[in-house]
Amino acid sequence: MNMECLLPDTIPDSPAFHTVAVTTVRHWNDHLFSFSVERPGSFRFRSGEFVMLGLPQDGGKPLLRAYSIASPAWADELDFLSIKVPGGPLTSRLKSVRPGDQLYLGRKPTGTLVADALLGGKRLFLLSTGTGLAPFLSIARDPEIYSRFEQVVVVHSVRRVSDLAYHDQQTALWADDPLIHEEAAVQFYYVPTVTREPFHTTERIGTLVENGGLFPNTLDGPRRFDPEQDRIMLCGSMAMIRETSAMLEKLGFVEGSNSRPGTYVIERAFVD
């Protein structure tokens, strides 16, 4: 048995963190999993923010990593999506969590992938690769988003079909959502793409922008990005973020922040 992967049933209390219990775990494939934890009564966050999660380690501070919250701000539980990093100090242990196990949860969520960092517009595009989908699962279930934008488009680019976490649940999640199901039925669009296996869409995000495949046929407006009406969030690989940010800047988009809203935004905390 791999002792490195064993997790304690309980962990020491820490004044700097909440101690929360895992409620559910799902392994999508051999390198991708999601899990939920109970939400402390005092824990508040804006949809799209991230928080520190971690476990104790011998003789030192807790081992922590930043994780985007995948559940909406009104949810009773906190959802997270994670890769399994071979030899990763935290994920080599975290991948073995089971319901009832305890984790440390930071007390102060933060981030720039929030509605406050964007100016108003008509169409909101949420462009993600891999686990970068997580904050957009939160944002796309936020009632405020559907009052601020006429149409919301989630784009998720992955290498393998099995990496499309929540692919089969996307429609059900929104259709059964108690707060936004009526709005999402007419305002929400989901564009998955797989780059290394056969799938109905196989181009990378940049190519989909160029050939118009990123814009569903029933979407109002032009089949291109328009800085006058479009607002864009980016989360995922550094290559995608750098390439897409450069393209947006050339088109006249301006990066936003909490203190100065703009027409597109990235999560600076995750960018080298």
Rank of each mutant, 00 (worst) to 15 (best):
P227L: 09
L214F: 10
G221N: 11
S237M: 07
R204D: 07
A239L: 10
G212R: 05
D230V: 08
R242P: 00
R223C: 01
T218K: 09
F199K: 08
G206N: 15
M238E: 09
P198H: 03
Q229M: 07
R223H: 14
M240H: 06
E197M: 02
E210N: 14
L214M: 13
D230S: 13
V209F: 11
G212Q: 10
F225V: 09
V209I: 14
L214E: 10
T201Q: 14
M240K: 05
I241D: 09
V209R: 08
E228G: 15
P216R: 02
P198D: 10
D230N: 14
M240S: 10
R231S: 14
H200N: 08
C235T: 15
G212W: 13
F225C: 10
L208I: 12
T195M: 07
P216A: 06
P222Q: 12
T195C: 06
V209E: 09
E228H: 02
G221A: 09
G213N: 10
F215G: 06
R224L: 13
G212Y: 13
N217Y: 00
V194S: 00
V194N: 01
R224Q: 14
P227G: 12
D220A: 14
D230R: 13
P216Q: 03
T195L: 04
G213H: 04
R231M: 11
E243Y: 01
I205P: 11
Q229T: 09
E228V: 12
D226E: 13
V194T: 02
I205L: 15
Q229K: 06
I241H: 03
V209K: 05
M233Y: 05
I232F: 05
G221I: 05
M240I: 10
V194K: 00
Q229P: 01
T207M: 09
I232H: 06
I232D: 02
L219N: 11
T207K: 09
T202A: 08
G236M: 15
M238V: 15
D230M: 10
M240D: 11
P198C: 03
I241T: 15
G236S: 12
Q229I: 09
D230L: 06
I241P: 00
Q229F: 04
T218P: 01
T193E: 07
G236Y: 12
E243F: 01
C235L: 07
L234S: 08
F199Q: 04
P222L: 14
F199Y: 14
